[in-house]
């Protein structure tokens, strides 16, 4: 119950943020030195034709009025037409968003497993001779951003070993079932094991590249908060009662130590979603990141606007969910 109340409260505070973001985005993109009307016309269009297109697109009206018009249409799910693709911008996002979410979820799983596992490993090595080595390794790992991992993986597993595919979401020639857009889910629903396998294999390199870049901070925070937790009296009490070390770690210490880690993971996952953009570009993965980069290259304003807003919505949702989880795991925050 209380979980839903928190989630609800968070989502309500997210609405004003979203409004401010949409205003900023709109204004920023309208003061650009590019003319969307001229760009949407063939190059041999006359001045009058461009002027007519400007009027039709509402670009001759004052900025607040333009925003009002845009907001009214956006509320009804109409985000305008892509200038470059000449298609409904909202539909393009609906097609590409599931791919990006699938990649981001896989990467989150990778970074959670690596981050928590690595954190436990680092904690296990505390005050051992290996500790400085392990810490330097994590610092160096933190110096490899996701797009460098992505390029290195292509080079090692794709080009040198030729072990893994590194373009797109499926083998060429395979048809998408096209139910939800989530390939793994669609493949399971339609019982197509060949598509499931192909989708999973295509997901491995991008997801590991993206997940690996976000794992080291999680490792460090988990290690630091485990060390803090082990200074607490209740841990010593448990030891005096003869509780085994493994049980102390898992049943007593980890429960508390994982809380700060969770906060960090919430922030990280928002950034991970942004990082997926580069990974998508490098792996020619048909998702929202590729759509965005294409739109930016072509100054395709309606697309930039709706994709920008979608990223913002995703981040706000992730933050709300993390807050809710935090409440579930931390009884001290619950009202009596």
């Amino acid at each position: 119950m209380i979980l839903w109340a928190t989630l609800g409260r968070r989502l309500v505070t997210a609405v004003p943020i979203l409004c401010v973001v949409s205003v900023l985005l709109f204004t920023a993109l309208r003061v650009l030195p590019v003319d969307p009307a001229a760009m949407s016309m063939p190059p041999n269009a006359t001045k009058e034709e461009i002027e007519a297109a400007r009027r039709e697109m509402g670009l001759d009206r004052p900025l607040p009025e333009q925003y009002g018009l845009w907001l009214g249409r956006a509320m009804r799910g109409d985000f305008g037409r892509s200038i470059h693709h000449r298609r409904d911008a909202g539909a393009l996002v609906r097609e590409t968003l599931p791919g990006t979410i699938e990649l981001a979820l896989a990467a989150m799983a990778v970074s959670s497993v690596l981050g928590l596992g690595g954190g436990l490993l680092l904690f296990g090595l505390r005050e051992r001779t290996m500790e400085p080595v392990a810490e330097t390794v994590t610092t160096l790992m933190m110096s490899v951003p996701e797009f460098l991992w992505a390029l290195l993986f292509i080079f090692v597993f794709g080009v040198a070993l030729q072990a893994m595919p590194f373009t797109g979401r499926l083998d060429p020639g395979m048809k998408l079932p096209g139910l939800t857009g989530f390939l793994v889910l669609d493949a399971v629903l339609t019982g197509r094991l060949d598509i499931l396998w192909s989708a999973l294999v295509h997901l491995v390199l991008p997801a590991v590249a993206l997940g690996l870049a976000f794992a080291p901070p999680i490792m460090r925070v988990l290690r630091a908060s485990l060390i803090d937790t082990y200074h607490e009296d209740y841990i010593r009490q448990a030891r005096l009662r003869g509780v085994s070390e493994g049980r102390i770690l898992i049943r007593h210490a980890l429960k508390n130590a994982v809380l700060p880690t969770l906060t960090l993971m919430g922030v990280q996952f928002g950034f991970l979603f942004g990082g997926s953009l580069l990974v998508e570009v490098i792996y020619s993965y048909p998702g929202m990141g590729n759509l965005m980069v294409d739109a930016v290259r072509n100054a395709d304003l309606p697309i930039i606007q709706v994709v920008g807003l979608t990223y913002c919505v995703v981040v706000l949702v992730i933050n709300s969910v993390v807050d809710g989880l935090y409440l579930v795991l931390n009884p001290r925050l619950r009202p009596r």
């Binding site: 900023l24 990082g275 580069l278």
Partner: peptide
């Protein structure tokens, strides 16, 4: 407001 944007996305929009 700033934190509700992934930094990569925000910098791309700014560079546009």
């Amino acid at each position: 407001v700033w934190m509700s944007f992934p930094p990569v996305i925000l910098s791309l929009i700014l560079m546009t």
